[in-house]
Design a protein around this nucleic acid. Structure first.
Lengths: 289, 289
DNA sequence: TTCTGCTATCTCTAAATAAGATAGCTATTA
DNA sequence: TAATAGCTATCTTATTTAGAGATAGCAGAA
């Protein structure tokens, strides 16, 4: 059974004529006859009475319902892929905690407002595990620190963060090696790229081992920093947003260590679902790319 | 877009391999490649990642939902026509009042019990208007008096009725012409074949004009006969069923006038919907044909 | 690197499809 | 009853498409 045949059949049912159906679908009458005949053979039942204007038989009326359902679903699927304003289905995103907290809310809100038919899920985690998720096909796109250099993946730079050193007391310069050696550092759990920058900062001072406390959430971490538990390293914009809630102070870091870019990484654009393609559109608009 | 392609695509999604999908659907791998490729071209998106075992892209996952819906509806339609135990959809019947009252209830009940997915509608009316309904395509099958002799219609003899003369007083023979001439006859509205038999009876006695009251329902008519309003002519079995409720008496009529057959008339069997075909099956069983 | 298992591509053959021409059927009208 | 107008069925031909096999190419594993 072919969708083409069902389309012709529906046209016959609606117009009551093989010729009109042929005209409507830009073909010739003999083809309509052939398609209908084939359907009839396949189903083992006569679908139309051919006397004095075509009328559906009871078998034809039984088929018509199914034909209409099939064609409606078919058209819906085509429209989804063809119309650049459509999006539906599922969209599974992943993001670093900090990006999620600070950058994504307006973007997700705008996307949801435009495409309410998309079921979105968002997982947060460190860069390494997000990339893993992406490669395992468990996420459609992830916000991570740094690009993925692989010809099957596509990295779009979306945000540039400047990392700063955060402490509970004011600083006039980056603390000395002696100071850092005895200090405690607070960081996200293993795999977070910001944590790697902490280690880079310490290495630049000749320090290889240091006490690091791991946290799962931004609030917990900042709260502990404010309480004087130790230092941390976070994007300036994140700190600006939370400074009023915590008694914390910042110090700029050398740009080699401070500058870190957030990328939206996906498989090749050719494989994007309409929902994902529209999300990238939204990213361009909302992030001003 | 072809259903065949979607079926292959679904198999690819499930097996994770073009070769396995080909085997599952009894074809060769190169055909799978071709079909998937065609789908991808048609939708303008890559549907599967081809590296290290096939995995769906986000576009592929978006399509899969539609593919499954389409194939499910398709299979449902095929099953309806192929499995002789299935029936669904609509069934529009027509019947004479007397047949409906007396013969159909057990048949309709049995049919509904076996095929609850069929939406049945039953219109009652005189033979002539039922035949009209059937020919206009407004009914799928009708119970009428007498066969329809037309090569596009199919008449199945289902019941044989013996008509009797009904009166409020006992009779020892068919009333004389003088008696009938002054009598009133009660009959269904114009077009009912039983009424034609009344006229035939009177004509056999040389009477051409007679007073006839028209009724729409059996109960009203029998009630009036019992009240001594006049005569009527009805199937013996109908009378037997109602005799206990009314004070009425019957007299046999000459067989040329008395015997009348009820037929189930439909379009050609080849055009029967599954619902109609199953109804005819039920008729055979329940009416003991 | 080499091997293994899979997919893409190419080619040939068979089958299906589209379109046109024509015959045949149905209901209408004179 | 016969002629007519408007359809649909059938037949034919050219073109397209699908199926199957052989082979090349690619990616991941050892």
């Amino acid at each position: 059974m072919q969708l083409k045949s069902l389309r012709l059949f529906k046209a016959v049912a609606e117009t009551g004529s093989f010729m009109a159906a042929a005209k409507q679908l830009h073909t010739v009458q003999s083809n309509v006859t052939t398609h209908i005949k084939k359907l009839e053979e396949e189903l083992g039942a006569q679908l139309v009475h051919r006397a004095g204007g075509v009328r559906l038989t009871s078998a034809g009326r039984a088929l018509l319902g199914y034909a209409e359902r099939l064609l409606a679903v078919h058209d819906e699927a085509l429209a989804l892929f063809k119309n650049a304003e459509n999006a539906a289905g599922q969209l599974r995103l992943g993001s670093m905690e900090t990006t999620m907290a600070l950058r994504l809310p307006p973007i997700l809100a705008a996307y949801h407002a435009n495409f309410p038919d998309v079921d979105m899920t968002l997982a947060t985690g460190p860069t390494a595990s997000l990339i893993e998720k992406l490669m395992a096909g468990q996420a459609d796109g992830v916000f991570v620190a740094g690009a993925v250099d692989h010809h099957r993946y596509h990295s779009l730079k979306v945000f540039s963060e400047q990392l700063v050193l955060v402490s509970s007391t004011p600083m006039t310069s980056v603390p000395s090696a002696e100071e850092l050696l005895t200090a405690t550092f607070l960081a996200f759990r293993q795999g977070c790229s910001y944590r790697q920058r902490i280690e880079l900062l310490l290495a630049s001072q000749g320090i290889n081992a240091v006490r690091v406390f791991e946290f799962g959430t931004l609030d917990a971490m900042l709260g502990c920093v404010a309480a004087g538990m130790g230092y941390t390293v976070l994007p300036r914009i994140t700190i600006e947003a939370h400074r009023h809630r915590f008694g914390i102070h910042t110090m700029e870091l050398p740009s080699a260590i401070a500058n870190i870019d957030t990328y939206f990484v996906t498989p090749e654009p050719a494989s994007w679902s309409p929902a994902l393609a529209r999300f990238v559109d939204t990213l361009h608009q909302e992030a001003g790319l």
